[in-house]
């Protein structure tokens, strides 16, 4: 009896402690919505034929709903800001626990990074990921020197200083979330034309590092085992520079393993992308208008080259997608 009381007390305070953890963790609902992309996927109630993985160059440049509208294929973007290649690998691994797509499209931009870049980006991606072996591996592969694993288990260790910065958002979205992305696509309708970028710099080395190849191999073999096609792309973007040396290496890799590689950056002109109107940050990422053009082009290409099903005539799926499209259009108008 005595011990029961103590156990009840402990339970009570543990619940308070857990609540505090939830309260202090950023909600990523109105500010920094990029932090809500990983968990948005868990709410998705159907499977897809195509999965995109990569960094901001995928979630800003490819809109699955546009692709559905123009070519009828189903797809989802699992991208995050500065998503490094090992992060893409573990996120892909997690995705494959939920579904088995026909094609996985990987944007190769992150091949240039061989070290964790910033704690803040790790947080955006990992904070809201469901716990799994993949998450544990992902944290261990991603954390910078200053970070410790425990702070991912107990977010209060990272965010306790937010106690003075709590806003309405933190209470409003304590136990719920709202839609921030559309099949992983983040709408941005701002226009900021290209002006200039710093001069192209010489680099200490142009060779991708071993760790990048290691994870590219892992992605490739993981997909091979499951009989999924891997497609490599380089998304259109003017900066950071995509060096010729990078291009050569990717092409070499693609031909060695007989993988398709599309450099969409080099054909951006013919797709109709205009950096005067189609970018929201002067040419790093495409805005909605650019993404619309690119999605139309690439959706058709995928459908044709990989024999993907056109679901617009499938009653069940088209019903779901038509609903999604209505929501998406609404968001576009209000944005």
């Amino acid at each position: 009896m005595k011990y029961l009381k103590v156990i009840l007390t402990l339970t009570f305070f543990t619940i308070i402690f857990i609540l505090l953890n939830i309260l202090l963790k950023p909600k990523y609902m109105t500010d920094l919505v990029e932090g809500s992309m990983t968990n948005a996927f868990y709410k998705e109630d159907m499977v897809h034929d195509v999965i995109f993985i990569g960094d901001c160059e995928v979630y800003a440049n490819f809109s699955p709903l546009e692709m559905y509208e123009t070519s009828g294929i189903t797809s989802y973007v699992r991208g995050n800001s500065q998503q490094l290649i090992w992060q893409s690998y573990y996120l892909l691994k997690e995705t494959l626990k939920y579904e088995t797509p026909e094609v996985v499209v990987f944007n190769v931009n992150s091949m240039r990074y061989s070290k964790p870049v910033s704690e803040a980006y790790n947080r955006l991606m990992i904070d809201n990921m469901k716990w799994s072996k993949e998450k544990i591996d992902l944290i261990n592969a991603s954390k910078t020197e200053e970070e410790n694993f425990l702070s991912y288990v107990l977010p209060i260790m990272r965010y306790h200083s937010r106690i003075t910065e709590l806003t309405k958002e933190d209470f409003e979205y304590l136990f719920r979330t709202k839609k921030t992305t559309y099949n992983g696509f983040l709408i941005n309708k701002n226009i900021k034309p290209y002006t200039s970028f710093p001069k192209e710099r010489r680099l200490p080395t142009y060779e991708f590092q071993d760790i990048d190849y290691e994870y590219l191999d892992k992605i490739r073999t993981l997909l091979e085992e499951k009989g999924i096609r891997l497609v490599l792309i380089k998304a259109p973007s003017l900066y950071p520079y995509w060096y010729d040396e990078y291009e050569t290496q990717i092409k070499e890799y693609a031909s060695t393993y007989n993988i398709d590689y599309y450099n969409l950056k080099s054909i951006a002109d013919s797709i109709g992308i205009d950096y005067e109107t189609d970018t929201y940050d002067g040419g790093l990422h495409l805005n909605y208008y650019g993404a619309k053009k690119l999605s139309k082009y690439f959706g058709e290409l995928l459908k044709k080259n990989y024999n993907l099903t056109d679901y617009r005539s499938d009653a069940k799926i088209s019903e779901i997608y038509n609903k999604k499209l209505i929501e998406y259009k609404k968001a576009l108008e209000s944005d």
């Binding site: 007390t9 402990l10 308070i16 402690f17 306790h160």
Partner: peptide, 16 residues
Amino acid sequence: CITVILVFTLGVYGIG
């Protein structure tokens, strides 16, 4: 428990 929670919440430690 109260002391532990106070330390976790109001303590000065960690990144930042």
